[in-house]
Design a protein around this nucleic acid. Structure first.
Lengths: 111, 111
DNA sequence: TAGCGTTATATTAATAAAAGAATAACGAAA
DNA sequence: TTTCGTTATTCTTTTATTAATATAACGCTA
């Protein structure tokens, strides 16, 4: 038996940021495009876009700087707020998972 | 912005026990019947039953002692294993949430 | 100006989850 | 033996979520 956990941020009870959006943002950062990130993740563009859109709306600030047009068609890059958010979330996540797994071992040993 | 978290147990990657089953079991314990518990929770009997059924299958032991028939129609009560599981899970949950929220405050202060 | 790959958005189709219905068995009591 | 409310199980219907599709705009280059 194994413990699994998920952590996410909410505003007014609505999901805003968590595991999924974080992975998506990191892939956009790496690939320079929401479209390519979605493709690589086998996610529809519209879903990827709506994840970002919802998060931005609830957070009240932009996560992506986007441009369309040009030779390469355009692309997306992360705002510094997005980069900060990822950094803080991932650090929190690592420590939280470690703590929680330790706690799990203590409580569930022998169950 | 507020943190939310969920914890659940898996066996072979399959959800086995967590928040939902725990609440359901506690209601069965209080009401003495799976049927009444499901009704109170606005959940279909078949769903409630399948939650319990799946958990029992994956855990390899029974969570409920059931009887059908008789004047009152029968009912369900919790096995001691189920009671133990609830107790351990809830204690773990309380401590985990406290730790994690403290950690969240530390990391997200000022974000 | 035409073509390209992107963003942006809405609409439609497909899939998954949950609810609901149907049926049978149980066993105490009238 | 009939009635009752429960458990147990399967199947169908409904609902919610997710994916796919369609369309437009953008702006660089040839």
């Amino acid at each position: 038996m194994k413990l699994e956990c998920r952590f996410w941020m909410t505003v007014d009870g609505e999901k805003v940021f968590g595991r999924g959006p974080c992975i998506l943002l990191k892939n956009i950062d790496r690939l320079g495009s929401l479209n390519r990130a979605a493709k690589e993740m086998n996610m529809s563009y519209s879903k990827a876009w709506s994840i970002i859109h919802r998060a931005e709306k609830a957070l009240g600030y932009s996560l992506l700087e986007t441009k369309s047009g040009g030779l390469d068609g355009g692309g997306s890059s992360l705002t510094w707020e997005a980069k900060k958010l990822i950094k803080v979330y991932e650090k929190f996540l690592m420590e939280a998972e470690e703590l929680v797994n330790k706690l799990y071992e203590e409580h569930f040993k022998g169950v």
